[in-house]
Design a protein around this nucleic acid. Structure first.
Lengths: 229, 229
DNA sequence: ACAATAGTGTCTCTTAGACAATATCGA
DNA sequence: TCGATATTGTCTAAGAGACACTATTGT
């Protein structure tokens, strides 16, 4: 019950940065600078820095900025992973977050250390990062069945057929067009961008949509895993 | 980015122990032994002890045993709360869990320090425990709309009308009897206890049910916030 | 004009809720 | 037998998916 015991716990934050690439979900991995596992691909993460971070959510934002050079429009706490075995440095706690970004936000040429890896291809990873990624993917897929989460994987504007494709990639099944549109209509979070249509292809142009104002930059609303829906 | 920084973080676990009393959801609070807030009612919790706990889930189980004297049949990670301000001792992280127990498991006479407080009555609490409780209650209510979670608030055996009352207490609305029974039937997690009926009242006796074998003691399945549905 | 895909109207089938009939107890 | 509540059957309304039709582009 004494504080010194507790001070032997290493406190870190890891971020599962997800985006769609070639129609399938990918996670961003970085080559580690330091030991343990220096040079090995792993989740962006690091120690919580009390002098820099107001809370762990701030720390996650900082990781994204420092390591991947971006500000994610969607960031949510996932879960906390802990134990003796997960980090060779000792008993540790990792508060894991997951972020969803549109492909164009992730400039891979400017961030040569970032590698995108398909989430469905099993791969050995340091620490328990494989488990953390699996948990994030399950969370995203599960939320996709009943929420608007996948819109954060699209860019600022998108057509409904594009969005439907995103849902279908995540859920791994094709969806009914009419039902999908009805559902999006009910959710009441999208608005057509007047006059902006997707042209250039040999068919009727599709209307561009965007998130309604209140739903852009969800980040501020979900600081401590308290976000709803 | 150095370890010593991170070691200034205080790492604790708090448990939101919920049960039904007089038809409404209550949370178990304990009078604190030590400073800060000695003598004040707060959530059962304490420092993670690396030498005792394999992980934070173990720590939560330990808190429940040490402070409330019980083994909860349902325990799940809720979220992690963190920051400079929440604990006067310094920058801290609290990995919060919530437990659901049937009323008869919580022997208040054997645990005189435990107080049951209605969750819907606002009350000042130390740290950010009010927020933590609110998050737990929201999680439970939200999960009750689509899952079997509320069965863990019943005892080992219960009738369907009893269970429906539990759902109704949590959701704050009355449910359709036929739909409720259909739903329970679909979930396929309950089995009638052959020959056991609730008698003693002046009406047709109700069949007693229990969780099917695989669903009892959910604890082992949800160690790291990875449990589904 | 034609191929291609966007967007919409409508029909059907599945599912959820309302209602009501039957069952079984204690008094 | 009566009042009470459990349990079950059936009807109806609401929602989801299938299908098909119209709209609008580039070629």
């Amino acid at each position: 019950m004494n504080v010194p015991d507790s001070r032997n716990v290493i406190c870190t934050v890891d971020v599962v940065l997800l985006c769609l690439k070639a129609g399938s979900l990918h996670v961003a991995l970085l080559r580690r600078d330091h030991n343990p596992y220096a040079g090995v691909l792993a989740l962006p993460g690091g120690f919580v820095r009390p002098e820099l971070d107001q809370n762990t959510s701030d720390a996650a934002v900082r990781m994204l900025r420092e390591k991947a050079g971006l500000e994610s429009p969607y960031l949510e706490q996932l879960a906390t992973f802990s134990g003796q075995a997960r980090d060779p440095r000792g008993w540790s706690v990792s508060i894991a977050y997951y972020a969803l970004v549109p492909p164009d936000l992730l400039d891979l040429t400017a961030q040569p250390d970032v590698t995108l890896v398909p989430v469905d291809v099993p791969r050995a990873l340091p620490f328990d990062h494989r488990e953390i990624i699996a948990a994030a993917v399950e969370r995203v897929r599960s939320k996709s069945t009943y929420s608007s989460l996948p819109v954060y994987l699209c860019g600022e504007r998108f057509t409904l057929p594009q969005l439907q494709t995103v849902y279908e990639s995540l859920l791994g099944e094709s969806l009914n067009k009419v039902s999908f549109r009805r559902k999006m209509d009910e959710l009441d979070i999208l608005e057509p961008i007047q006059g902006e249509m997707e042209t250039g292809r040999a068919n009727r142009p599709a209307q561009y949509y965007r998130l309604k104002a209140g739903y852009r930059d969800q980040l501020s609303l979900c600081n401590r895993g308290l976000s709803s829906s």
